[in-house]
Design a protein around this nucleic acid. Structure first.
Lengths: 338, 338
DNA sequence: ACAAGTTATGTTATCGATAACATAACAAAA
DNA sequence: TTTTGTTATGTTATCGATAACATAACTTGT
């Protein structure tokens, strides 16, 4: 394994100083047009590849934004990250992604791993974190943005919505169509804090209308799959055959519930209405189409990215200037609750 | 913004040298148990966070494996990356992810970005790349692994399968059940090279049986969504109403096709059989369940991770030791082609 | 009790780029 | 012509950890 080519080699070959080579690689540095072209040509010929690690180390600017999401395999979070990346790319910022697997202990681990790499900002999904996570982030001295939630006691900035509140409108819609015996299918545990918030919101929305929130079906550990949604629906149909509507913690479980109905010959929405959450692609194309809530993941991503750019440009620092950006989820009525 | 805490500060506070602090943070370094505990305690109290950039820079060991996938929002690739991450984590290797958006030009850009960060190995999805990508990787002097394909002229190691060959079994299965007028729904362009390979494989498989491969329905730019699958199915039913079976480039488009059949009152599998690719969750739960091909994404990820670990341990270097690992995709017969 | 081996710690040089400052060469303004 | 300003380039110190080597302190075997 031969020694790697460095700027020094390029500089020697080009008969200039290392600093001039360094400048040739920057957009806005003052280098003669001829010289720059010559240097870049020599660099390419020598097979030189810029060393970000060295540059990062010296300049103490990593160009990283760290983003923690619960799972890689979730279209909602993928959309948020995608939109955020687009916005950040224009400011020469790269996204460093990590997965917490719906577990705030694992989140603590990845947050610490993130901080070791000195990101310029850090984005979390959700508003519940371990004490140590909070402490680490408080000390890190970089912008922190919590997303997909409206935490009561935020660490820093927030771009999100109230998961609980979305259930109010949804329950309202179902009740307006004459359905009062409504069930909720969600995770057994509170690992998915947004899912747990939705369950809480469901219970409150029912109680506000003096309806019994006694049909809570646990479907396993988050995230709830299509299969688990189907299994939960099966149990619901067995134990509470007079149920008129069911709200599922996500579109995936809602679709699973739909398939169970199809297999059992239960008619949706005539026998039972079904609603999901997330406005996944499947919700608008399955038969019947799903009533769902669109939390507008791309908007969360875009606004988070824009906020980070503002913050890194130095606008609005200090605790006094914490930003709260509310996203308005949108109720999308499908054939499954017509 | 106060100056960040460094090892020097911790060392001073603990009354030891910086080197001892450095050792206290390593697993296998020789430090007194007492001393290590004391140092870690002081570090935590001071709010010290290890600086990976500095460590990486000095040791010239980044601990990164760069992985390029076409899209973040694809369960198959997510599964591969997930399994790979698990295996690599045990060797203290982190995955740095990049998205090519089904475009080998964009792939070239992210490969160059990757190389700037000096990954210890690089994983690509697919076997078609630009000339410059190949040149960059040849010179990079790190293990290169192409996955999800069996390239004719591989850059380095390979963990994959022949996308074209999978179509042989699938067509065979459909023909065995008496269906000969078979259509293929896939992308219009060759951006998704694996999808294009499947289309080629379909055509060859048909021709091998002296069947006409003249029902090729373009469904837009890759990746093909459920909606595009449904639209393509609509066109297929209109233009070739006597079609007996349709193979879709992925389960998502196949599911879209299923929904279109449901809407049009076309019975699956009695009127037309439908098959997909990928063994996504949806294939085993939708009604009817989908016939599909399981390319075993986790196995690709796991074996790739294990190969990287072997290579980085120094086993089998040199061009003479290029490894080819074949994955056996599995035909999974569902109700949609019974 | 002493050699040889082991464990814990310190010292020095260094990874490859860039910030900060310095200066040469030339152009424009006075 | 001299001053001032601009552009292109060079010089020096440095970011924070760790490899490599050195050594002190302690253990073990004979």
């Amino acid at each position: 394994m031969q020694r790697a080519v460095t700027m020094k080699d390029v500089a020697q070959q080009a008969g200039v100083s290392v600093m001039t080579v360094s400048r040739a690689f920057k957009q806005h540095a003052s280098v003669g047009e001829e010289t720059r072209k010559r240097i870049l040509k020599i660099a390419e010929d020598l097979g030189y590849v810029f060393d970000s690690n060295a540059a990062t180390f010296r300049s103490q600017r990593t160009g990283f934004v760290a983003v923690a999401i619960p799972s890689i395999n979730n279209a909602n979070f993928a959309d948020t990250v995608g939109a955020m990346s687009e916005v950040l790319k224009e400011a020469d910022l790269q996204v460093l992604l990590g997965y917490s697997n719906y577990d705030i202990q694992e989140e603590e681990v990845i947050v610490e791993q993130f901080l070791r790499r000195r990101p310029e900002a850090i984005v979390l999904t959700g508003g519940r974190h371990t004490e140590r996570t909070r402490r680490l982030l408080d000390r890190a001295n970089i912008p922190v943005i919590e997303t997909w939630d409206l935490p009561e006691d935020p660490i820093g900035h927030v771009v999100g919505f109230s998961n609980a509140a979305t259930m109010h409108d949804l329950v309202g819609h179902l009740v307006a169509s004459g359905r009062t015996r409504i069930a909720f299918i969600g995770g057994d545990t509170d690992g998915d804090t947004r899912g747990a918030d939705r369950r809480r919101g469901f219970i409150r929305a029912m109680e506000d209308r003096s309806l019994a929130a006694d049909r809570l079906i646990g479907a396993g550990d988050p995230p709830i799959s299509m299969r688990e949604g189907a299994d939960a629906m099966s149990r619901l149909l067995e134990n509470h055959p007079d149920t008129q509507a069911v709200i599922c913690v996500s579109d995936l479980s809602a679709f699973g519930a739909l398939t169970e109905c199809a297999r059992k010959g239960v008619k949706v929405p005539d026998d039972v209405a079904v609603a999901g959450f997330g406005a996944y692609d499947i919700s608008s194309i399955c038969v019947p189409t799903l009533t769902t809530v669109n939390p507008r993941p791309e908007e969360i991503g875009r606004k988070t990215g824009e906020l980070i750019r503002r913050l890194l440009r130095g606008e609005g620092t200090g605790d006094s200037a914490l930003v709260q950006i509310g996203i308005e989820p949108e109720l999308s009525i499908g054939e499954s609750s017509a």
